[in-house]
């Protein structure tokens, strides 16, 4: 493992799975490993830094075209292998800065590579695999959509370095012509625009917001703590429909997603009447 560049995502992947996630044929940025958790077989997935990435605009934990397509192949193999048997939980450990921004990426269709892994996660969930997203670090924009969005249950560390957002603050400030200070102030009033994970939790998407004593460096105690919550999330997912409805039906969503709920109710009424 000596040549592998470390990251928060890699450390948690290794702590939870006990493996480095390297698979022959996969790019080094993609970590995949079988493991056991709570007495059953699971599959761990993650994105790690890869300074030797073939794509220069990827390799710093981005979701690029290789991560998308190879990730898809790995997930499809899990779905296929479990087709006639128990559906292994798929646990994605997320510390991924964003999608990759580059000319090469656009030319070869990064939108499709990202769509492909989303479809694979969604199909895994629909097939009965508990799909769990464990957000231990950055999970911004395309990383959220590609790696976390289709999970039955999303868990995030309650830590200042954990970031779920549409866009990094400096870029958002540039585009909306606001200062970073103004964005911070706005986030206090407009919860969906806030950058702290506690505000994200208020939107109802998270199964758990987890205070971990050592978010940067897993130890036996914190690893056991995280595993316990993962097992609970897996069990909870197995008891529930294989949809994302749990997010919109959460108590938090009843407060901040009133408009979503109104759309759902009115659309159903008008659809039936049309």
């Amino acid at each position: 493992m000596s040549d592998l560049v470390t990251s928060r995502g890699r450390k948690w992947f290794e702590a939870l799975s006990g493996k480095d996630g390297r698979v022959a044929g996969n790019p080094a940025s993609l970590m995949v490993s079988p493991g056991t958790l709570g007495g059953e077989n699971v599959v761990y997935v993650g994105i790690a830094p890869d300074p030797k990435s073939r794509f220069p605009r990827a390799g710093h934990t981005e979701v690029g075209v290789e991560e998308g397509w190879y990730g898809t192949r790995n997930l499809r193999a899990v779905i296929e292998a479990d087709k006639n048997g128990p559906k292994r939980p798929i646990i994605t450990i997320i510390d991924s800065k964003s999608q990759a921004y580059g000319r090469r990426e656009e030319l070869v269709g990064i939108h499709l590579a990202a769509a492909a892994i989303i479809a694979a996660y969604a199909d895994a969930r629909a097939a009965g695999h508990p799909v769990i997203a464990l957000i231990v670090g950055r999970c911004v924009s395309g990383s959220f959509l590609a790696l976390a969005g289709q999970a039955n249950r999303m868990i995030a560390f309650d830590d200042p370095e954990v970031l779920v957002h549409a866009m990094y603050k400096d870029a958002a400030a540039r585009i909306t012509r606001r200062s970073v200070a103004e964005l911070d102030k706005l986030g206090e009033e407009i919860i969906p625009m806030a950058y702290d994970i506690g505000s994200f939790a208020k939107l109802g998407g998270l199964y758990a917001l987890l205070k971990v004593a050592t978010p940067d460096l897993p130890n036996d105690v914190t690893t056991a703590q995280v595993k316990k919550v993962l097992v609970e999330a897996i069990n909870d997912a197995r008891r529930s429909p294989r949809t994302l409805d749990v997010r919109l039906e959460s108590d938090a969503a009843k407060v901040l997603r009133k408009a979503s709920l109104k759309v759902r109710r009115m659309m159903a009424e008008q659809w039936a009447a049309a």
Partner: peptide, 23 residues
Amino acid sequence: GVRLQEANMGELVIAEIYAEMVA
């Protein structure tokens, strides 16, 4: 893309759009 004034709400809703498209 996502509406920056609704940022994370947009991200959540977009994930729900994808889920329904795949289904």
